[in-house]
Amino acid sequence: MTMTLTAPSRSPLARLRWAFTDGWTITRRDLTHWANQPVQFVVNLLFSVMVLLMFGFLFGGAMSVPGGGGYQDFLVPGVLALTMVFGVEATFTAVSTDAQRGVTDRFRSLPMAPSAVVLGRCTADLLNAVLTLAALVVAGLLMGWRWHNGFAAALAAFGLLLLLRLAMLWLGIYLGLVTRSPEAVMALQILVWPLGFLSNAFVAPSTMPGWLGTIAEWNPLSATAAATRELFGNPGWGGEGWLAQHPLLLALLWPAVLTAVFCPLAIRRYRNLSR
């Protein structure tokens, strides 16, 4: 058998190159999943579109936006942010399935760059998030939603959404490495719903009972939803408190805090697999 084997290289530059090459191999694995299961992939994309349509058309008529204006202008940024939070489930499922099946162990027994597993996961999940956002934006535009502050501000809003998704990625990786039972997948699938709905995604927290409203205001999802509403020039929920007045700052701060907590935890957990 003749094979050109690349000898393990110690130079930092070569290591960095392998981290990206191996990371791309892992990313391509997810892209191949999508290509192998096109129906599943489209259904996943359409799920968030369905949430948008359901709330826009079924409940939209009964909703009134605090500052006035159409409900879809309030709703679309909310669903965009909600979808980013729901993404934690996809990351979690992928990571815990690999750990349970022994695929993670196989990766760890290969001479590949250890960081590539995480890098590949991040790239694939962020690509998926971009595609999901695109599907939602198209559906939103068809429903009559518009952004009013120009393209640059809209781009910034999408940036904030992806930042939230990135924060959720670390949470998902950490949880996926900690809990390995199939039951945990179910539990998380159920738990993301209250997490997503206890926010300003669909209604203003001021319409909720006091303590629930407070939780909803503090929800990281609410910060991103409020900030993107501001950037898109869509109506917000018009709260009076400090939280409501500084959505942009919070939409940067929350993902930063989540990443600062769960990124090191996830990395430590991955390293501790060899303990």
Partner: peptide
């Protein structure tokens, strides 16, 4: 790692790939 192969207790392959 360049000189060992591991076959663990689970069939550690990706189910969704061929």
């Amino acid at each position: 790692r360049y000189r060992l192969g591991l076959v663990g207790q689970h069939a550690a392959v990706d189910e969704l790939l061929s």
